[in-house]
């Protein structure tokens, strides 16, 4: 597993993905300038932009690295040489996942440090009305990272059942969009509003079922709490971490089971 992990990491670095991230990270330099367009919340806007930029970069990595990681090996016929080694397919999947995950974590750490510097800078230029909560910022970045690791496991799951990259890439993007909205849809359907009552019961039931199946990504969003220094409930965080562990494990287990049975023709 570690051997797969290491070459996965090496592959990502050799493909100059990190250089790409560095280029995107240059956008951070403009954040205080854009932030100053705000009337009353320069620091707040800077934090919003920084956290969203991190989130966006991690999303790209999760979708494109996670979605092509397994597919590329099949497409380029690497699977024959790699799976001919005395490695179980499960350890291959886990190694691949860990490699991607480690890279995502390194990127989040790197961008997180840049964000701290940018916010310090913006804060120096325009003192904020409310003190910046550094702990909240770190929590926001941490949970963003967890969220995208979960998304990588979803991309892996799609890769295990598909032979092309369409399903992994577009499926993962769809899960990302729906997963961020599922909580609101669920709340709306159970709000007892008049508009809901005209919907057929089947629709409501199907939507509720989807709510329990699709990862609830909105739970990982602590950006507002970081931007406005709001308090974060410890219980909520603990439950979210637990949810993450279980969901990601299930996704990887399913991926491994399906991949074990897959024919390498």
């Amino acid at each position: 597993m570690t051997s797969i992990l290491l070459i996965t990491l090496k592959g990502i670095f050799r493909d100059r993905v990190f250089q790409g991230i560095m280029v995107m990270a240059l956008l951070f330099l403009f954040i205080p300038t854009i932030g100053s367009l705000s009337m009353r919340q320069v620091t707040e806007l800077s934090i919003t932009l920084s956290l969203s930029l991190i989130s966006f970069i991690l999303l790209l990595l999760a979708v494109f690295l996670g979605g092509t990681s397994l597919w590329k090996d099949i497409e380029k016929r690497y699977t024959f040489s790699v799976l001919g080694l005395p490695l179980s397919r499960t350890s291959y999947i886990l190694g691949r996942f860990m490699g991607n995950a480690l890279f995502l974590c390194l990127t989040a750490l790197f961008l997180g440090v840049i964000t701290l510097l940018v916010i310090l800078w913006a804060k120096g230029l325009y003192p904020p009305s409310r003190p910046v909560r550094w702990d909240n910022m770190m929590i926001a970045v941490l949970f963003d990272t967890l969220k995208y690791l979960l998304l990588v496991s979803v991309a892996f799951f799609f890769s295990s059942v598909s032979t092309s990259f369409f399903l992994p890439i577009f499926g993962t993007i769809s899960v990302y969009l729906v997963g961020n909205a599922s909580q609101e849809v669920y709340d709306y359907l159970h709000s007892g509003s008049q508009a809901v009552k005209v919907l057929p019961g089947m629709v409501v039931k199907a939507a509720s079922l989807l709510y329990y199946l699709i990862p609830n990504l909105a739970a990982f969003d602590y950006k507002l709490q970081a931007v406005y220094g709001l308090d974060i409930a410890g219980r909520g965080m603990a439950l979210t971490v637990l949810y993450w562990v279980i969901y990601t494990t299930i996704m990887l287990a399913l991926t491994a089971v399906i991949y074990e049975r897959r024919e390498m023709k």
Binding site: T48, S52, S55, F56, D144, K147, Y176, L177, N180, L224
Partner: peptide, 9 residues
């Protein structure tokens, strides 16, 4: 829906 977790931005 479309702004997913980028609502602040």
């Amino acid at each position: 829906f479309v702004s997913a977790d980028h609502k602040g931005v």
